[in-house]
Amino acid sequence: MVEIGLLSRSPLAAVLQPGHYGQPGQDGLVVQERTGLHIVNLAARRGQGGALAVAVQRSWGLELPTTPRRAGDGRLAFLWSGGAQWLAIAEGTGDLELSLKDRLGSLASLTDQSDGRSVLRLSGSRTRETLAKGLAIDLHPRAFTPGDTALTLAGHIGVQIWQLDDTPSYEIAVARGYAGSLIGWLLPAGEEFGITVLPPG
């Protein structure tokens, strides 16, 4: 039997090179492509939303959000992602889809999105000003806080964004085919504040 090995390649490899861009000596925006993430979309089966929340609570001690919020941390988080839908995101080498399938059984339909989304981590003192140039929702701390998430547009591209902490730092997930286009908007938007692109990690 012929073994076919598929190489995993980032859609950002050609457009997001580590280095400094824009305004010299300033670091208003720090961009890093996240790697090694396991991403699975969960959609509750009809009438099983309550049972799914109970199963998630029992298995991981996390409260499945029913509003646009993120529950969990970097190791495993559940993000609200539309009515009766969530994204589970985990770091590490385990098989997230298998682990979810084992514990959630027939309560939800699972779709592996690990290779379907690119995730960027954005931080730096001018992150909000940069995002405001193309993201129409209000990211002021009064309106959007750590743990909040939103499905919206950034530079006319559909994204899911969530806030990690008050520094402020965010993560933004985009369909991988649009990742290059998102960078094509983000880097010019942040140039005036100075941008550091970190190696993927």
Binding site: P68, G83, A136, T152
Partner: peptide, 9 residues
């Protein structure tokens, strides 16, 4: 579900 958004969405 999402809150107030512009008509473009």
């Amino acid at each position: 579900l999402c809150g107030e958004r512009g008509a473009e969405e």
